[in-house]
Design a protein around this nucleic acid. Structure first.
Lengths: 200, 200
DNA sequence: CTTCAACTGGTAGTTACTACCATTTGACTT
DNA sequence: AAGTCAAATGGTAGTAACTACCAGTTGAAG
């Protein structure tokens, strides 16, 4: 949906797989929009996407993953790694986020918005996405440890990573309630606020 | 387990209910320790606690809740509310946390440690506890809004709340990996770091 | 001690998910 | 072009966490 890795070239088998995958995801999101996440069964999704339930679970290990499967996290992680090491951790993350998100098309953003909105409103999904987020941050922590030369069980660093996670999540909550605002700016502002402290 | 609300006085019915509840929770944690969370079924727990599965679900709406049902969040929320309004938000939270946690007994703390460790290591539980945490923070945000007089959809305030959530979670992660350290100090240090910014 | 509400146990059903097997289908070799 | 193999699919059977409901029991109160 976001990363069209190979252009045109791909075996018939690969093309079919990609098609099936997007068909499932597409139908699932349509049904979720229509009847809600919980009221939609995997069987219904599979039917509409013209596959068997077995096949559904081969493409998505769980119903949650249809909404949460996210291609951006690895990109962001990579972008952080690519930042020059003289930047402060938060600066590096801000730059990385900017690089990744500024390349997204309008469609990508709309798709992301819909999934984010859904993910933050359904308890089960919200829980799962928070956990996913926590894992990503943990990876980024390891990166930052290399970056700054500190140990990766450094408490200050963990704290920083936790704070970054927290503000990014709250920026996303804010985004779904104020869609007219720009996600990148929101994230950037939040991180800026974090960088300079919260003295009131 | 933590809040022994009423002393002695309580009808037979109420006493029985409390007993059943702790029996279920106790047996559940024992079995989780023994065989792991996922490998333990609700039926087993119910058997050991000598109730029917139906009754189990009357006491705990889901298997997760046996571990997560937390009596501290409301106490903390209340303690934040009780802080004098001239304190900065982070200061108010630090004080509130200190007040609540310093009243815990050693047993309470050990119990909390075990549940936290379990909750952070099992994906399903981790997801749920993160979500629970997010909800608590949202409540605290509302409190802080009154506190500081700002609107409760103020972006800066949400960001602050998110950061608080993040650092508190990472402090807990750190705690389960370094049990010898003191949870209150960890939380307090983390929040202090947050208050004064992350410039490196 | 009778009446009533609260609590309990049991039954039947739904849904997400797993394990497994038989069949089909695309990819590659000769 | 045919044949072989691995990958992908569909279907079946089973598990476990719930939910809804109903019938029986037990504590509370007059």
């Amino acid at each position: 949906m976001a990363a069209e890795s190979q252009r045109a070239k791909a075996s018939l088998r690969e093309r079919k797989k990609a098609k099936t995958r997007t068909a499932i995801q597409h139908e699932a999101l349509r049904l979720f929009r229509l009847h809600g996440y919980e009221a939609t069964t995997v069987e219904e999704i599979a039917d509409k996407a013209e596959v068997s339930p077995s096949t559904f679970f081969r493409y998505f290990p769980s119903k949650e993953d249809v909404v949460l499967s996210d291609d951006y996290d690895p990109l962001i992680t990579e972008a952080v790694r690519a930042q020059p090491s003289e930047l402060s951790p938060i600066r590096a993350i801000r730059n990385a986020l900017f690089e990744v998100f500024s390349q997204l098309s309008q469609d990508d953003l709309e798709d992301m918005f819909e999934r984010t909105q859904l993910a933050l409103s359904v308890p089960e999904l919200r829980a799962a996405i928070l956990d996913q987020f926590a894992r990503t941050i943990r990876q980024i922590t390891d990166l930052l440890a290399e970056h700054t030369g500190s140990a990766n069980d450094d408490f200050a660093l963990h704290t920083l990573a936790g704070a970054v996670m927290g503000v990014m999540i709250s920026a996303q909550f804010h985004w779904v309630e104020h869609p007219e605002q720009n996600l990148i700016s929101l994230l950037d502002n939040a991180l800026e606020q974090l960088e300079f402290g919260f003295q009131y």
